[in-house]
Design a protein around this nucleic acid. Structure first.
Lengths: 129, 129
DNA sequence: ACAATAATAACAATCATTATCATTTTTTGC
DNA sequence: GCAAAAAATGATAATGATTGTTATTATTGT
């Protein structure tokens, strides 16, 4: 990665804000200093910085919503090989909301966990297709 | 909610599949029975059914990616009032991956938790604006 | 059977994000 | 310091998931 003024400023803006801005928020903040910057440049650099491990991209693996006939609370596991979603009983995280509350003072009304990994089917698949 | 053939079939398809399909996957499956069904109808019904509590919509509260200069592992808390994102130390969920592994046999390589609730600032705000 | 109401299909519109590509900036070897 | 090579940029088109619009069709209570 070579130097670029826009990348330097993107990093600066991100490091100076306590919130976790979206690409668009960074873009807006940058316009003061670089009125001609393109939103695509912001996206490009954020993705590159994240790939490089210099920043972290917070997103969910699921690119679109999924629907579930199981309406009792539970968590999900997404297989990184086949992308299938499996149910995880929510008992694995009981008490976690209380833990967060007492640690932070935040009023926690819910949580959900997505686990990633390799499902049983994919574990047993031959690696060579 | 009145009866409709398409809604009935949407529910049927959803109840019969063990995976957690996307709207588009349900749409494709339905085309066999209702060749003229519209994708918008599938979306509309899934959302209504989810509002009614008959099914569950799995999605994340964050509609778009956020970027974080804090690259050590941690979880996030999103305030349902102001939408701000706060960091939660990941120690609150240590051992949870092992728990899931031994319970299910899945090979868990990671997890992330998003907590929802009301942040300290919003807790102290007057409810009447 | 019929008017009132709700749901539909088709398609335009939106939002976040990525791809394309000609132009500009940065690096590098001399 | 300077020209060629490599990388990054800005403008904009394209994409994918989802929602809005509207004229048409189905459902319901009477």
């Amino acid at each position: 990665m070579n130097y670029s003024r826009q990348r330097e400023l993107i990093l600066k803006v991100l490091k100076e804000t306590p919130i976790h801005p979206t690409a668009d928020e960074i873009y807006s903040a940058l316009k003061k200093y670089l009125p001609n910057i393109s939103l695509a440049t912001v996206y490009r650099n954020l993705n590159q910085l994240a790939l490089n491990g210099e920043i972290k991209k917070i997103e969910n693996l699921e690119t679109c919503a999924h629907f579930d006939h199981n309406i009792h609370k539970h968590h999900h596991f997404i297989c990184i090989k086949c992308n299938k979603i499996y149910d995880i009983p929510q008992e694995v995280s009981k008490d976690i909301e209380k833990k967060v509350s007492s640690l932070t003072g935040l009023q926690v009304t819910g949580h959900n966990i997505s686990f990633q990994g390799i499902c049983n089917a994919c574990q047993h698949k031959k690696t060579t297709l």
